[in-house]
Simulated scan of single mutants.
Amino acid sequence: MASVFSKIIDGELPGRFVWSDETCVAFLTIAPVAPGHTLVVPRAEVDKWTDLPAEEFAHLMSVAQIIGRAVVAAFDAPRAGELIAGFEVPHTHVHVFPAWDMGGFDLSRANSDVADAEMDSAAAAIRAALREAGNGEHVAE
């Protein structure tokens, strides 16, 4: 059975995509720890990040770094946070979010009740920052 992330990638479920390439996608999580909390997800459905081929993992981290720069720029944050947990969905995913303190690293503090307009605005801000940084060819519409 396909993971919820595979269903989002395949368009069976909605997602606020900010990045798309042949190896991975990035979209906002439905339970952010901060505005702009984004998941970078390989297209291949691999449960554990430690099982990804090295080249694919390196690409995922490269995209996570680009998304990290974008969330810092979009939300005027001092840092970007990054986490790999994998307990929520059995499909590798990297959490990238603007961080002001260590509180963002606690996924149990995620908010699953964010207004659609706020989520749409966060996605638009990240897309704009990605375009501004010269990554327009990968920015999802």
Rank of each mutant, 00 (worst) to 15 (best):
D106M: 03
M119I: 13
H37E: 01
M1P: 11
W100N: 08
F87V: 08
M61S: 13
P14G: 01
S6D: 06
T29W: 03
L130W: 05
T38M: 04
L130C: 13
A80P: 04
G81M: 08
A128N: 14
E118I: 02
W100E: 10
A73D: 15
A54R: 10
F5N: 11
E141Q: 14
T38Y: 06
E22M: 01
E12M: 11
E132V: 01
I30T: 11
D101E: 11
G136H: 09
A58Q: 07
D10P: 00
R16A: 09
A58V: 08
A133K: 05
L60T: 01
A80Y: 10
E88K: 02
E82A: 14
P98T: 01
S112A: 14
R127F: 02
V4D: 07
H93A: 06
W19G: 05
L83K: 00
V18E: 07
A117S: 13
E22R: 14
D116C: 00
F87D: 10
M119K: 05
R43G: 08
E45T: 12
D21A: 11
E45H: 10
G36M: 02
A34G: 02
A26G: 05
V72K: 15
S62I: 00
A77D: 06
M119C: 02
L13D: 07
A80T: 05
Q65R: 15
A80R: 05
D76E: 15
F5P: 12
E141P: 15
V40A: 09
E132C: 00
A74K: 08
A64R: 04
I8S: 08
H59M: 10
V41R: 05
H138P: 04
F87Q: 14
A77P: 08
F97C: 01
R69N: 15
A99H: 01
A122M: 09
V96M: 08
I84R: 03
A74E: 09
V139M: 13
G81E: 09
A110G: 14
A140C: 11
M61H: 03
A80F: 12
R109N: 13
